[in-house]
Amino acid sequence: MLRYAAGRVLAGIPTLLLVSIFIFSLAHVTPGDPAVLLAGDNATPAQVEEIRSRLHLDLPLWQQFGIWLGDALQFDLGNSIYSGKPVTELIAQRIEPTLVLSLVTLVLTVLIAVPLGAISAWKANSIVDRISMGVAVAGFSIPVFVIAYLLVYFFAVKMRLFPVQGYKWLADGWLTTLNSVTLPSIALAFVFSALIARVTRASVLDALGENYIRTARAKGLGPSRILFIHALKSVGVPVVTVIGIGLATLVGGVVVTESVFNIPGIGRLTVDAVTRRDYPVIQGVILFFSASLILINLLVDLSYAFIDPRIRE
């Protein structure tokens, strides 16, 4: 078990290193001199030189990367060009809405997609299966902002059940927070559930062909017990894997959804930084999301050992 865990952790390090090389080079694909860009329109050549040496832009690229990576490891991602604030501080300020939105979406997704996928597999090719898989294809075909506006129109503008936009902080009471993230979470969960439901269906379909399911049937167990206890247990690993990998897709959705609902999370931070070409913030946010995803997928890998004892060996 310990060896498995150590192996997974070690495998994550080169990935993270390569990711940071990509993200570092992002700023260097920009046309133009970053020092000139940072200095603004009215800077003197001396000011540009000062910025160049302060940001180590006069050093060779590999040394710049070393310094950047060293700082990043100490949670220093540089300062925003726009506001001058440290990037880590900007991220920390905005992490709560993004985290709440993602977690609520994740819970909704698991509650919707796993039972839906399992039932579709059980009743494969039935009308229930066809309808739910049809909805699933629609789910990842309709862009999340289209779904978001549909929800806003019907549930916020027409029925006035939820706020049209905005986010209520947890400090003001978690119920109002939940109320403010309901529509965005449903929009995201619609897309995310579509992916998870399809994978769950395929995995359960495989599992239902196994001998132990036949044995369970022969013992006279009821369908719900076979499906939800025996079959679902064995599909834990593929489903959790897809949830882990799918989080990258979810992050993309979160960025868009936060923009639609005017939620002051990291997604909004990204879009604002992009429109201002604030590249330390862009780099910082991408590094933050990528490192989080690598970490989460590492935890997912480790969780297999608990879900499936065969992996512990």
Binding site: L26, A27, I282
Partner: peptide, 14 residues
């Protein structure tokens, strides 16, 4: 490991 939409946004912006 880098979210696709984020990478595309960053590339398109830069």
């Amino acid at each position: 490991a880098i979210p696709a939409v984020l990478l595309a946004i960053a590339l398109a912006a830069l």
